[in-house]
Each structure stands twice: as structure tokens, then as C-alpha cells.
Design a protein around this nucleic acid. Structure first.
Length: 109
DNA sequence: GTACTGACCAGAT
DNA sequence: CATCTGGCCAGTA
């Protein structure tokens, strides 16, 4: 059906779209949920390929340490943090989110 | 085909 | 806490 976009990207985007507001998932989580366990890096690439006006909530994907993985100080990293804060998430003084509180677990709304 | 890269990860130091 | 290390998987040159 879609000859040019990779099926993998579509699959990853669909999974990311499932993360509810106020929750986050790690790159590894998304990879596993997308049927690509261990391919966390592949998730970053898929998100990188999103257009700037996408509806996919890419900002809800962070790394396993609870931090934003985009280059520190970049416009995109600031945007991600702002979007998450708008959803009520609270960053620690060290710039980290508490995954025990905010991590999304599939099938558990 | 090899070699290097990346919005990663877990464990070790 | 900071760094490093090896591993992971797909993309790119």
C-alpha cells in the first residue's frame, strides 16, 4: 500500500499515537510494542522522519533515563519539554522525569 | 559486500 | 553522579 514509506515507520508511529496525554514511553518501549524488540535506535529514526506538522505525539517518547534525548539546548528539545509540561508532567531539578510515575504501560490506561 | 552512523540501552567502572 | 563498553537494529555511503 505504501510503496515509499517504510512499514516500520508506520508501525512505530501508530504505537506512539497510543501513548495517552500525561504519559511517556521510552524508545525501547516503543520498539518492543512495535514488534522490534531491541531496536530502540530505529524508533529515533522514525520520529526524526515525522513532518513538523504531524499529529503523532512524538514528544511523549523519551529515553530510559527519563530524559529528553534530543540535543540539549536545541529548539526541538525545548519544544518537547514544553509540550510535556503542558500535559502536566513535572521534570525534576536534574531535568528528568520520574518514569515510575509517568511511564505508559500498554493496555493499562 | 564492508564500514560508519544514530532522538538507544543495560551493565560495569 | 559521570564515562565507558558492548550490544542492539535499520539506514546510509
Amino acid at each position: 500500500m505504501n510503496g515509499h514509506n517504510s512499514e516500520i515507520d508506520l508501525q512505530i508511529w501508530q504505537v506512539v499515537a497510543l501513548i495517552p496525554p500525561g504519559k511517556v514511553a521510552t524508545y525501547g518501549d516503543i520498539a518492543a510494542q512495535s514488534g522490534l524488540p531491541g531496536a530502540a535506535r530505529r524508533v529515533g529514526l522514525a520520529l526524526r522522519r515525522l513532518s513538523s506538522d504531524t499529529r503523532v505525539p512524538w514528544h511523549r517518547v523519551i529515553n530510559a533515563t527519563g530524559r529528553i534525548s534530543l540535543p540539549a539546548g536545541s529548539a526541538s528539545s525545548h519544544l518537547q519539554r514544553r509540550k510535556l509540561e503542558e500535559e502536566g508532567l513535572v521534570f525534576g531539578a536534574n531535568g528528568r522525569l520520574d518514569l515510575r510515575r509517568f511511564r505508559w504501560t500498554p493496555g493499562n490506561p
